[in-house]
């Protein structure tokens, strides 16, 4: 038997499907909505509806967009010969904020992980390879996460492009800038050591 009226139960159930929301948080948010102003609740509902109706993956790079192609893909001032491959759309935001990169992107939609049943077919790797050929890309920068699955994904893409003339690079990993050496953890420092460069 349900503790609350059915619509409230349903709201709690839907909320608890969200990431990092447990049953207790879901309940608290649900009651906040129930108690709150009607305008706010309808505003939230509209926003949810709008995002699902209007936002979809960019045809070219699978970034999120309202249009057919995303703003970055449509920006002709950007370097069309470089593609940066990332796992998720929000990784684009991180790289854009650096202001250092002026090329295009490609959102893979995750990383290879047999444990989670994720094969190349579940990612947008075929689309990337096709793009490289069609757009005559000169360089691919692979910016997957520096963990086991992210690195395996990078490796796989590099292997797939072995015979193509495109240059495949990966982001360097090393010490945080502005920090002190003594505060770096051993693993990061060890990696930075392995990747030391000539001065």
């Amino acid at each position: 038997m349900a503790t609350y009226a059915r619509p409230v139960e349903r709201l709690i159930t839907e909320l608890s499907k969200l990431p990092s929301i447990g049953p207790k948080s879901a309940q608290r948010i649900a009651f906040h909505i129930v108690r709150g102003r009607q305008d706010d609740a309808f505003g939230l509902a509209d926003a949810l509806r709008e995002v699902k109706e209007k936002i979809h993956p960019c045809k070219r790079c699978f970034n999120l967009t309202e249009a057919e192609e995303c703003d970055i893909c449509r920006d002709t001032r950007r370097d069309q010969s470089v593609i940066c491959a990332v796992e998720d759309p929000y990784d684009i935001g991180s790289i854009e904020r650096t202001g250092e990169y002026r090329g295009l992107y490609h959102v893979l939609g995750g990383a290879l992980s047999p444990l989670d049943g994720i094969d190349p077919e579940n990612l947008r790797i075929a689309e990337l390879l096709e793009r490289v050929q069609r757009e005559e890309t000169k360089e691919i920068v692979i910016a997957t996460n520096p963990n086991t699955t992210g690195e395996a994904t990078a490796l796989f893409i590099a292997q797939e492009l072995e015979d193509s003339p495109v240059r495949v690079t990966a982001l360097a990993s090393g010490l945080p800038v502005g920090g002190d050496l003594e505060y770096a953890d051993e693993v990061t420092l060890g990696r930075a050591f392995a990747g030391r460069r000539e001065l």
Partner: peptide, 30 residues
């Protein structure tokens, strides 16, 4: 241990027809 765990899972998926052998070389490298 993590990489071997992923590779083992992939081996089973290949055996049972859920995955192709395409990424096996990648996990070998890892």
């Amino acid at each position: 241990a993590k990489a071997v765990g992923q590779r083992n899972q992939l081996l089973r998926r290949i055996r049972d027809g859920f995955s192709s052998e395409r990424t096996l070389a990648t996990w070998d490298r890892k």
